[in-house]
Amino acid sequence: MAGKKTPSNLDLIKNGIFRENTIFRLALSLCPSIAVTNKLENGVLMGIAVLFVQVMANITVSLMRNFIHPRIRLPIFMLIISGWVTVADMAMAAYAREAYKQMGLYIQLIVAFASILARAEMFASKNKVVPSMFDGIGMGLGFLFSLSIISFFRELLGKGSLWGYAIIDAKPLLIMVLPAGGFFAVGILMGFFNWLSLRYEKKM
């Protein structure tokens, strides 16, 4: 990292949304991106839960980075992450029951997200609190953005509705809300975003 100029907070956020987008660029955490995205509402709520956990885990890890013994840093990161996931889980069970019933299991699975552990290890454990927070916000927003787009297309095409409200009055493409449709949606969108970045990053 030495010699490199420190990125601004805005750069950190942009990095998480575009250059290192969890799903479309890093291809991490694909399991929830297929499992919970058959409805826009679920995709957005899942994205918010991940955003919360990512930011809180980054802040906590960064605060404790000089205190944690390097030998047990990974188990400690897992403990921190699982603690915040449990907080998100309990909050959703109380305040967003309808959605929680459908995706409760996947909220708990956030513990195992490679992207969250990776940010704790690669960024938050080496940086101060404020940049870590913005890195978390960037990565979380990137995830929220990806899940929203995927679930937007899947619900629109597969159910003909958005957020539960009917939009298209025609027989929907049922396959889009089934698991296979998830693979299609993620694959096509991933290809699209890579094409976009190839096209526009070449100029730089």
Binding site: G83, T86, V87, M90, A91, A94, Y95
Partner: peptide, 10 residues
């Protein structure tokens, strides 16, 4: 932290 959140949400 978990105890506080649980007491509030449960």
């Amino acid at each position: 932290i978990l105890a506080v959140v649980y007491a509030k949400t449960s």
